[in-house]
Amino acid sequence: MVPRIAIVIGLAAFLAGLSVATFAELKMFLPAILRGAVVTVQISVLSWLVFMAMSLIAGVARAKASGAVLWLAVGYIEVFRGTSLLVILFWLFFVMPEFGLTMSPVLAGVLGIGLNFGAYGAEIARGAIGAVPRGQTEATIALNISPWNRMTRIILPQAIAIMIPGMVNLTIELIKATALVSAVTLVDITYASVQQNQLHFRTVEIFAITLMLYYCFAQFVRFGGDALEERFSRHLSKRV
């Protein structure tokens, strides 16, 4: 873990150094890329909320529901995992208006990414719920604990600890996937750097900065995830 922290610090230093060394040049395109970074962060945070909500709802339904609710969950998971994110974004933005539902670019981007990743997250949530030992359910029956309390107070708290690593990986994938939102006319880091590259032709510098920004986002999420995992699984390890 330590070397990777060093790398992130090194990259930050490199970025700082680069900006000093070629300040005049950077001034041309850095502001636009940073404005794009703000859009990337916004879309990431909003779609992450949709992603987590859908993961838990569809995951619980997939694991425990029956009948129509189960089929709804299965249908949602299969459809949104089966299609390509770019197609989903296009469909939401260009075809949904045909059904009388016009979306803003941000809404289409957030919904498309959130629903797509929610389908993957649901499978992780389902697996984690299934990984909670059967004895836990039996104990709640023996203690006459209601099904709702069983899920929210006993099963989910344990399942969430199990699903953290998978969800952290998906969160990093989600941030990477926000690079596609230019398809719905949003100017995120990726699209900003393409635009700036076409204006200034500084491919190496521009894309080095862009790639490193994404890399830093990913490492940031990774640290947060590790800390979270540590916190949640402290009491679950066999021996402390």
Binding site: P133, G135, A139, I154, P157, Q158, H235, L236
Partner: peptide
């Protein structure tokens, strides 16, 4: 009371 206790670990 169960063979494997089944305490809630969290």
């Amino acid at each position: 009371v169960f063979q494997n206790f089944n305490l809630f670990p969290h």
